[in-house]
Amino acid sequence: MAKGKTFKRPEALRDCPTHYCPGCTHGVIHRLVAEVIDELGVRGRTVGIAPVGCAVLAYNYFNCDFQEAAHGRAPAMATGIKRVRPDLMVFTYQGDGDLASIGMGEIVHAANRGEKFTTIFVNNAIYGMTGGQMAPTTMPGQRTSTSPFGRDAAQVGMPIRVAELLASLQTPAYIARQTVIKPKYIARARKAIHKAFSYQLANRCFSLVEIVSTCPTNWGMTPLDAVEWTEKTLLAYYPPGEIKTPEAAEER
């Protein structure tokens, strides 16, 4: 009996090409979310909320109800849905410009209210859709189209660690950070996403998984160089791990 595994597209992901650039790990994250939706059997009552950014077109790639938010406002839309229809499973899928720049107010207050939806926060340290501008998570010295000489912390401050920022709130929540740049990390990211959705399914708490992701095109790197730079530079500043769980919060 030959040993081996099957592998196929999850049902919650449509069988169509995506617009993402070659090597962009948005595609991996989409698949993991879809796999978790399938596993939990909730596709029929899931509503995803797309951001403004590269992932706005996520609504073409998922096989469940979707809404498209204004830039940064997905957590408010998710709040609106969960409050009037708590039976629906809701997730927002947001980039770093969307969540940590214009949408910072919304994500902080949704997390602090303990809204019971799940946020997939894709941190690739740059604005992708608009062509590579500096994001709140852009690294010191990292060149972008609006930090052409490298991000200068003396001028625009240090990159924001969103997971830790949100974890500092007193309301119980599940907050983790992972990455998807290599299979071993992908397995952990999948587990974190599964846990996040499970907390929502149990109506337990707000959940957010920050996923450090690549942007080969706007970083000006090949997909493989982008993986190495992420591992060497981004993960050093954005350490993966389980930052906060509702159990830990409640023990205090």
Binding site: R73, T79, I81, V84
Partner: peptide, 22 residues
């Protein structure tokens, strides 16, 4: 359902999300 949002901006999108789900 009663909820005080963090800003009128956020409130308008809570309205949008709730309305869009029917």
């Amino acid at each position: 359902v009663f909820l005080q949002g963090e800003s009128e901006v956020a409130v308008s999108y809570m309205i949008f999300g709730a309305s869009a789900c029917g």
